[in-house]
Design a protein around this nucleic acid. Sequence first.
DNA 1: CGCATTTTGGTACTTTAGTATGAGGTAGTT
DNA 2: AACTACCTCATACTAAAGTACCAAAATGCG
Lengths: 136, 136
Amino acid sequence: MKKTVVTFGLLILSLLVFFQLSKYSFVSGGLKIEIVIAAVAIVFFIIGIYLNKRSLHQERPPEGELDLHKLKALDLSNREYEVLKEVSLGLSNKEIGEKLFLSESTIKTHVSNILVKLNAKRRTQAIQIAKEMRII
Amino acid sequence: MKKTVVTFGLLILSLLVFFQLSKYSFVSGGLKIEIVIAAVAIVFFIIGIYLNKRSLHQERPPEGELDLHKLKALDLSNREYEVLKEVSLGLSNKEIGEKLFLSESTIKTHVSNILVKLNAKRRTQAIQIAKEMRII
DNA sequence: CGCATTTTGGTACTTTAGTATGAGGTAGTT
DNA sequence: AACTACCTCATACTAAAGTACCAAAATGCG
Protein backbone atom coordinates (compact mmCIF):
# COMPACT_ATOMS: atom_id res chain seq x y z
CA MET A 1 0.00 0.00 0.00
CA LYS A 2 2.82 2.33 0.92
CA LYS A 3 4.61 1.49 -2.27
CA THR A 4 1.56 2.35 -4.34
CA VAL A 5 1.42 5.82 -2.81
CA VAL A 6 5.11 6.39 -3.39
CA THR A 7 4.88 5.17 -6.99
CA PHE A 8 2.00 7.39 -7.92
CA GLY A 9 3.65 10.29 -6.15
CA LEU A 10 6.69 9.81 -8.36
CA LEU A 11 4.46 9.54 -11.41
CA ILE A 12 2.77 12.86 -10.72
CA LEU A 13 6.11 14.42 -9.92
CA SER A 14 7.55 13.36 -13.26
CA LEU A 15 4.48 14.74 -15.02
CA LEU A 16 5.06 18.09 -13.33
CA VAL A 17 8.68 18.03 -14.43
CA PHE A 18 7.51 17.58 -17.99
CA PHE A 19 5.13 20.49 -17.59
CA GLN A 20 7.98 22.69 -16.54
CA LEU A 21 10.12 21.40 -19.36
CA SER A 22 7.41 22.19 -21.85
CA LYS A 23 6.96 25.69 -20.48
CA TYR A 24 10.67 26.27 -20.58
CA SER A 25 10.82 25.16 -24.16
CA PHE A 26 7.88 27.39 -24.93
CA VAL A 27 9.62 30.46 -23.58
CA SER A 28 13.17 29.90 -24.71
CA GLY A 29 12.38 27.96 -27.84
CA GLY A 30 15.40 25.81 -27.13
CA LEU A 31 13.47 22.52 -27.01
CA LYS A 32 10.91 21.49 -29.54
CA ILE A 33 7.56 20.50 -28.14
CA GLU A 34 7.62 17.28 -30.16
CA ILE A 35 10.69 16.11 -28.31
CA VAL A 36 9.07 16.73 -24.97
CA ILE A 37 6.01 14.79 -25.97
CA ALA A 38 8.06 11.92 -27.33
CA ALA A 39 10.02 11.84 -24.09
CA VAL A 40 6.82 11.73 -22.06
CA ALA A 41 5.52 8.93 -24.23
CA ILE A 42 8.66 6.84 -23.86
CA VAL A 43 9.01 7.38 -20.12
CA PHE A 44 5.42 6.51 -19.33
CA PHE A 45 5.50 3.57 -21.71
CA ILE A 46 8.43 2.15 -19.78
CA ILE A 47 6.85 2.94 -16.44
CA GLY A 48 3.70 1.12 -17.54
CA ILE A 49 5.67 -1.97 -18.47
CA TYR A 50 7.66 -1.89 -15.26
CA LEU A 51 4.70 -1.47 -12.94
CA ASN A 52 2.73 -4.12 -14.71
CA LYS A 53 5.53 -6.62 -14.43
CA ARG A 54 5.79 -6.03 -10.71
CA SER A 55 2.09 -6.33 -10.03
CA LEU A 56 1.82 -9.50 -12.08
CA HIS A 57 4.62 -11.08 -10.15
CA GLN A 58 2.90 -10.19 -6.93
CA GLU A 59 -0.44 -11.68 -7.75
CA ARG A 60 0.97 -14.88 -9.19
CA PRO A 61 4.12 -16.18 -7.51
CA PRO A 62 6.42 -17.50 -10.25
CA GLU A 63 5.79 -21.22 -10.44
CA GLY A 64 8.85 -22.54 -8.68
CA GLU A 65 8.36 -20.34 -5.62
CA LEU A 66 8.01 -22.40 -2.46
CA ASP A 67 5.79 -21.42 0.42
CA LEU A 68 8.34 -21.56 3.20
CA HIS A 69 5.85 -20.63 5.87
CA LYS A 70 3.67 -23.66 5.28
CA LEU A 71 6.76 -25.79 4.90
CA LYS A 72 7.89 -24.92 8.40
CA ALA A 73 4.41 -25.28 9.82
CA LEU A 74 4.39 -28.93 8.80
CA ASP A 75 7.63 -29.65 10.68
CA LEU A 76 8.77 -32.20 8.18
CA SER A 77 12.31 -33.23 8.98
CA ASN A 78 15.02 -32.76 6.37
CA ARG A 79 14.99 -36.39 5.37
CA GLU A 80 11.23 -36.51 5.20
CA TYR A 81 11.14 -33.51 2.93
CA GLU A 82 13.81 -35.03 0.76
CA VAL A 83 11.84 -38.24 0.49
CA LEU A 84 8.67 -36.31 -0.25
CA LYS A 85 10.31 -34.69 -3.25
CA GLU A 86 11.40 -38.06 -4.60
CA VAL A 87 7.93 -39.45 -4.07
CA SER A 88 6.51 -36.58 -6.08
CA LEU A 89 8.83 -37.50 -8.93
CA GLY A 90 7.06 -40.82 -9.14
CA LEU A 91 9.76 -43.07 -7.70
CA SER A 92 8.99 -46.27 -5.79
CA ASN A 93 10.21 -46.80 -2.24
CA LYS A 94 12.91 -49.10 -3.49
CA GLU A 95 14.11 -46.60 -6.08
CA ILE A 96 14.20 -43.82 -3.52
CA GLY A 97 16.19 -46.07 -1.22
CA GLU A 98 18.74 -46.72 -3.93
CA LYS A 99 18.95 -43.06 -4.84
CA LEU A 100 19.54 -41.94 -1.27
CA PHE A 101 21.56 -45.02 -0.23
CA LEU A 102 18.98 -46.14 2.29
CA SER A 103 17.04 -49.33 2.82
CA GLU A 104 13.51 -49.65 1.56
CA SER A 105 12.17 -49.98 5.09
CA THR A 106 13.69 -46.67 6.04
CA ILE A 107 11.88 -45.06 3.14
CA LYS A 108 8.66 -46.70 4.24
CA THR A 109 9.08 -45.26 7.69
CA HIS A 110 9.69 -41.80 6.27
CA VAL A 111 6.76 -42.02 3.90
CA SER A 112 4.47 -43.16 6.71
CA ASN A 113 5.50 -40.15 8.78
CA ILE A 114 5.03 -37.85 5.81
CA LEU A 115 1.49 -39.14 5.31
CA VAL A 116 0.64 -38.43 8.93
CA LYS A 117 2.11 -34.93 8.82
CA LEU A 118 0.46 -34.05 5.52
CA ASN A 119 -2.77 -35.67 6.65
CA ALA A 120 -2.87 -37.88 3.56
CA LYS A 121 -4.03 -41.46 3.11
CA ARG A 122 -1.85 -42.30 0.14
CA ARG A 123 1.34 -41.03 -1.41
CA THR A 124 -0.59 -39.77 -4.40
CA GLN A 125 -2.73 -37.67 -2.10
CA ALA A 126 0.40 -36.42 -0.36
CA ILE A 127 1.69 -35.25 -3.73
CA GLN A 128 -1.54 -33.42 -4.44
CA ILE A 129 -1.58 -31.77 -1.02
CA ALA A 130 2.08 -30.78 -1.22
CA LYS A 131 1.60 -29.25 -4.64
CA GLU A 132 -1.46 -27.37 -3.53
CA MET A 133 0.50 -25.92 -0.64
CA ARG A 134 3.38 -25.02 -2.95
CA ILE A 135 5.66 -27.08 -0.76
CA ILE A 136 7.24 -28.81 -3.69
CA MET B 1 5.88 -10.75 -35.88
CA LYS B 2 3.19 -9.15 -37.98
CA LYS B 3 1.40 -8.01 -34.87
CA THR B 4 4.52 -6.36 -33.54
CA VAL B 5 4.83 -4.27 -36.71
CA VAL B 6 1.20 -3.25 -36.58
CA THR B 7 1.43 -2.36 -32.91
CA PHE B 8 4.46 -0.16 -33.29
CA GLY B 9 2.94 1.42 -36.36
CA LEU B 10 -0.07 2.38 -34.27
CA LEU B 11 2.20 3.68 -31.55
CA ILE B 12 4.05 6.00 -33.92
CA LEU B 13 0.79 7.09 -35.47
CA SER B 14 -0.64 8.07 -32.10
CA LEU B 15 2.52 10.00 -31.34
CA LEU B 16 2.10 11.93 -34.59
CA VAL B 17 -1.49 12.66 -33.68
CA PHE B 18 -0.28 14.15 -30.43
CA PHE B 19 2.25 16.24 -32.31
CA GLN B 20 -0.51 17.68 -34.44
CA LEU B 21 -2.64 18.26 -31.37
CA SER B 22 0.15 20.14 -29.69
CA LYS B 23 0.77 22.30 -32.75
CA TYR B 24 -2.90 23.05 -33.03
CA SER B 25 -3.02 24.08 -29.40
CA PHE B 26 0.06 26.18 -29.90
CA VAL B 27 -1.53 28.15 -32.73
CA SER B 28 -5.10 28.49 -31.57
CA GLY B 29 -4.38 28.54 -27.85
CA GLY B 30 -7.48 26.46 -27.33
CA LEU B 31 -5.78 23.54 -25.65
CA LYS B 32 -3.24 23.85 -22.92
CA ILE B 33 0.03 22.07 -23.50
CA GLU B 34 -0.19 20.48 -20.06
CA ILE B 35 -3.32 18.66 -21.04
CA VAL B 36 -1.72 17.27 -24.14
CA ILE B 37 1.25 16.03 -22.20
CA ALA B 38 -0.94 14.48 -19.54
CA ALA B 39 -2.93 12.72 -22.24
CA VAL B 40 0.23 11.38 -23.81
CA ALA B 41 1.41 10.15 -20.46
CA ILE B 42 -1.84 8.36 -19.68
CA VAL B 43 -2.20 6.80 -23.11
CA PHE B 44 1.33 5.45 -23.25
CA PHE B 45 1.14 4.31 -19.68
CA ILE B 46 -1.89 2.22 -20.54
CA ILE B 47 -0.32 0.97 -23.75
CA GLY B 48 2.75 -0.10 -21.80
CA ILE B 49 0.65 -2.09 -19.36
CA TYR B 50 -1.38 -3.69 -22.11
CA LEU B 51 1.54 -4.73 -24.26
CA ASN B 52 3.42 -6.09 -21.31
CA LYS B 53 0.50 -8.18 -20.19
CA ARG B 54 0.17 -9.71 -23.64
CA SER B 55 3.84 -10.53 -23.99
CA LEU B 56 3.97 -12.06 -20.53
CA HIS B 57 1.06 -14.27 -21.29
CA GLN B 58 2.76 -15.43 -24.41
CA GLU B 59 6.00 -16.44 -22.80
CA ARG B 60 4.38 -18.18 -19.87
CA PRO B 61 1.14 -20.03 -20.63
CA PRO B 62 -1.28 -19.35 -17.75
CA GLU B 63 -1.04 -22.35 -15.45
CA GLY B 64 -4.30 -24.06 -16.23
CA GLU B 65 -3.64 -24.14 -19.95
CA LEU B 66 -3.69 -27.70 -21.28
CA ASP B 67 -1.47 -28.87 -24.07
CA LEU B 68 -4.12 -30.28 -26.35
CA HIS B 69 -1.63 -31.42 -28.95
CA LYS B 70 0.16 -33.76 -26.60
CA LEU B 71 -3.15 -34.85 -25.17
CA LYS B 72 -4.30 -36.06 -28.56
CA ALA B 73 -0.95 -37.61 -29.36
CA LEU B 74 -1.36 -39.96 -26.39
CA ASP B 75 -4.72 -41.23 -27.64
CA LEU B 76 -6.09 -41.66 -24.17
CA SER B 77 -9.78 -42.52 -24.36
CA ASN B 78 -12.31 -40.29 -22.65
CA ARG B 79 -12.70 -42.61 -19.72
CA GLU B 80 -8.99 -43.07 -19.33
CA TYR B 81 -8.44 -39.34 -19.25
CA GLU B 82 -11.20 -38.97 -16.71
CA VAL B 83 -9.63 -41.62 -14.51
CA LEU B 84 -6.21 -40.03 -14.91
CA LYS B 85 -7.53 -36.78 -13.51
CA GLU B 86 -8.98 -38.55 -10.48
CA VAL B 87 -5.73 -40.41 -9.94
CA SER B 88 -3.87 -37.11 -9.95
CA LEU B 89 -6.17 -35.89 -7.19
CA GLY B 90 -4.82 -38.66 -5.01
CA LEU B 91 -7.84 -40.96 -4.98
CA SER B 92 -7.56 -44.74 -4.63
CA ASN B 93 -8.98 -47.08 -7.23
CA LYS B 94 -11.90 -47.87 -4.99
CA GLU B 95 -12.67 -44.20 -4.40
CA ILE B 96 -12.51 -43.45 -8.10
CA GLY B 97 -14.85 -46.34 -8.75
CA GLU B 98 -17.36 -44.97 -6.28
CA LYS B 99 -17.07 -41.48 -7.69
CA LEU B 100 -17.64 -42.60 -11.27
CA PHE B 101 -20.08 -45.40 -10.41
CA LEU B 102 -17.76 -48.11 -11.70
CA SER B 103 -16.27 -51.21 -10.14
CA GLU B 104 -12.77 -51.16 -8.79
CA SER B 105 -11.62 -53.66 -11.39
CA THR B 106 -12.75 -51.36 -14.17
CA ILE B 107 -10.63 -48.61 -12.69
CA LYS B 108 -7.71 -50.99 -12.46
CA THR B 109 -8.08 -51.79 -16.13
CA HIS B 110 -8.17 -48.11 -17.04
CA VAL B 111 -5.20 -47.27 -14.85
CA SER B 112 -3.20 -50.11 -16.37
CA ASN B 113 -3.92 -48.80 -19.84
CA ILE B 114 -3.04 -45.28 -18.78
CA LEU B 115 0.32 -46.46 -17.45
CA VAL B 116 1.11 -48.11 -20.77
CA LYS B 117 0.11 -45.07 -22.80
CA LEU B 118 1.98 -42.64 -20.58
CA ASN B 119 4.93 -45.00 -20.41
CA ALA B 120 4.87 -44.99 -16.62
CA LYS B 121 5.57 -47.72 -14.11
CA ARG B 122 3.42 -46.40 -11.30
CA ARG B 123 0.49 -44.07 -10.92
CA THR B 124 2.69 -41.55 -9.16
CA GLN B 125 4.97 -41.48 -12.16
CA ALA B 126 1.97 -41.10 -14.43
CA ILE B 127 0.97 -38.03 -12.44
CA GLN B 128 4.44 -36.55 -12.79
CA ILE B 129 4.54 -37.23 -16.53
CA ALA B 130 1.07 -35.87 -17.10
CA LYS B 131 1.86 -32.68 -15.21
CA GLU B 132 5.09 -32.23 -17.08
CA MET B 133 3.22 -32.52 -20.37
CA ARG B 134 0.58 -30.08 -19.14
CA ILE B 135 -2.04 -32.73 -19.81
CA ILE B 136 -3.73 -32.22 -16.47
C1' DC C 1 27.89 -34.90 29.26
C1' DG C 2 22.93 -36.00 29.12
C1' DC C 3 18.72 -35.55 26.74
C1' DA C 4 15.56 -35.06 22.88
C1' DT C 5 15.05 -35.66 18.16
C1' DT C 6 16.24 -37.62 13.95
C1' DT C 7 17.71 -41.20 11.20
C1' DT C 8 18.13 -45.63 10.16
C1' DG C 9 16.55 -50.36 9.86
C1' DG C 10 14.07 -54.68 10.87
C1' DT C 11 9.91 -58.01 11.28
C1' DA C 12 5.30 -59.10 10.55
C1' DC C 13 1.08 -58.12 8.66
C1' DT C 14 -2.81 -55.75 5.93
C1' DT C 15 -4.15 -53.14 2.23
C1' DT C 16 -3.64 -51.12 -2.45
C1' DA C 17 -1.81 -51.29 -6.83
C1' DG C 18 -0.81 -53.40 -10.91
C1' DT C 19 -0.66 -57.50 -14.50
C1' DA C 20 -2.64 -61.06 -17.28
C1' DT C 21 -6.38 -62.89 -19.34
C1' DG C 22 -10.92 -63.49 -20.76
C1' DA C 23 -15.39 -61.97 -21.92
C1' DG C 24 -19.89 -59.62 -22.72
C1' DG C 25 -22.01 -55.21 -24.33
C1' DT C 26 -22.18 -50.83 -27.10
C1' DA C 27 -21.39 -47.74 -30.93
C1' DG C 28 -19.49 -46.32 -35.02
C1' DT C 29 -17.31 -47.62 -39.56
C1' DT C 30 -16.62 -49.86 -43.83
C1' DA D 1 -23.09 -57.88 -41.34
C1' DA D 2 -18.34 -57.81 -39.97
C1' DC D 3 -14.85 -55.12 -37.82
C1' DT D 4 -12.82 -52.07 -34.61
C1' DA D 5 -12.39 -49.43 -30.59
C1' DC D 6 -14.12 -48.58 -26.19
C1' DC D 7 -16.16 -49.66 -21.84
C1' DT D 8 -17.33 -52.68 -18.44
C1' DC D 9 -16.33 -56.38 -15.05
C1' DA D 10 -14.34 -60.66 -13.12
C1' DT D 11 -10.75 -63.90 -11.38
C1' DA D 12 -6.24 -64.95 -9.98
C1' DC D 13 -1.96 -63.60 -9.10
C1' DT D 14 2.38 -60.69 -8.02
C1' DA D 15 4.27 -56.58 -6.47
C1' DA D 16 4.20 -52.43 -4.06
C1' DA D 17 2.59 -49.57 -0.42
C1' DG D 18 1.40 -48.76 4.09
C1' DT D 19 0.88 -49.80 9.40
C1' DA D 20 2.47 -51.12 13.89
C1' DC D 21 5.96 -51.82 16.88
C1' DC D 22 10.51 -51.96 18.23
C1' DA D 23 15.33 -50.58 18.71
C1' DA D 24 20.10 -49.12 17.86
C1' DA D 25 23.00 -45.29 16.09
C1' DA D 26 23.71 -40.45 15.00
C1' DT D 27 22.97 -35.69 15.74
C1' DG D 28 22.23 -31.36 17.89
C1' DC D 29 21.70 -28.53 21.89
C1' DG D 30 21.51 -26.58 26.73
